[in-house]
Amino acid sequence: MTSRVMLISPAITEALREARFDDGCSLDASGRRLAEAAAGTLPAADLVVCSPTVRCRETAAALGLRAEDAAPLAALDAGRWRGSTLADVSAKEPESLARWLADPESAPHDGESVRAVCDRVGRWLDTVADGAGRVIAVAEPELARAVVVRALGAPESAFWRTDVPPLTVVELSGRLGRWNVRLGRALG
């Protein structure tokens, strides 16, 4: 049986507008409005899950989805950088930031490495490929990146080369660990 997985990135938040590591903020008014406008456009699914973050839960609700939290889809743990802007981290810890962006095993923020996120999400993808049918997951952009990396067997350095804009869909279809990937379709 072919499995189908749709990963939907959350709507815009203040943190995203400010290029800030997520700190649990809610969707902003425009993000909520855009998500609500896309409600009803998604196909029926056998499993609907979301990252256990505020913005993913709120996006799922605005889309009219009754999503369960999926622990394997937790956002990348940014450690002590949580709530900081990328510009602040770059100014205070330029070497650490450069190392984190260049080395998938690095976690200078005392959080989670890119490799750890890719491995975690890869294990989740393997489990949903075992006959879950159609899966819809509202997931943080970094998780969609990690899914693409694992689904294509790409090197982890490709993680930073994949853009996942708000309210877009990454779609996977396949069976037995062989995936086809469709990127960047806007909702609505």
Rank of each mutant, 00 (worst) to 15 (best):
C56L: 01
C56A: 14
C56I: 14
R57M: 06
E58W: 01
T59H: 04
A61H: 06
A61Y: 00
A61E: 12
A62P: 12
L63K: 05
G64V: 02
G64L: 08
L65N: 10
A67E: 01
E68K: 14
E68F: 15
D69L: 12
A70G: 07
A70R: 05
A71V: 15
A71S: 14
A71Q: 12
P72M: 05
L73M: 01
A74V: 13
L76F: 11
A78K: 08
G79W: 05
R80L: 11
W81S: 04
R82S: 13
G83T: 02
G83E: 08
G83M: 07
L86G: 07
A87T: 15
D88M: 04
D88V: 06
S90R: 08
E93F: 04
P94V: 11
S96Y: 01
L97E: 14
L97F: 03
A98G: 15
A98L: 11
R99S: 15
L101G: 10
A102W: 07
A102D: 15
D103R: 07
E105G: 10
P108N: 08
H109L: 09
D110E: 15
D110P: 14
G111R: 13
E112P: 12
S113Y: 08
V114L: 09
A116L: 06
A116G: 06
V117S: 11
C118D: 12
C118W: 07
D119E: 13
R120I: 11
R120L: 09
V121Y: 12
G122V: 06
G122Y: 13
G122A: 09
R123M: 14
R123Q: 15
W124F: 13
D126C: 10
D126Q: 07
V128M: 06
V128H: 00
A129R: 00
A129P: 00
A129V: 00
A129Y: 05
D130H: 11
G131A: 07
G131F: 02
V138K: 02
V138L: 05
A139L: 01
E140W: 02
E140A: 05
P141F: 04
E142I: 03
E142A: 13
L143V: 15
A144E: 09
R145F: 03
V147M: 08
V148L: 14
R150S: 13
R150E: 12
G153C: 02
A154S: 15
A154Q: 10
P155F: 00
E156A: 12
S157D: 07
S157Q: 08
F159I: 02
W160I: 03
R161K: 10
T162R: 03
T162C: 13
P165T: 07
L167I: 09
L167Q: 14
L167Y: 07
V169Q: 04
V169D: 03
V169M: 11
V170W: 14
V170G: 08
E171N: 06
E171C: 03
L172T: 01
L172V: 01
R175Y: 10
R175A: 15
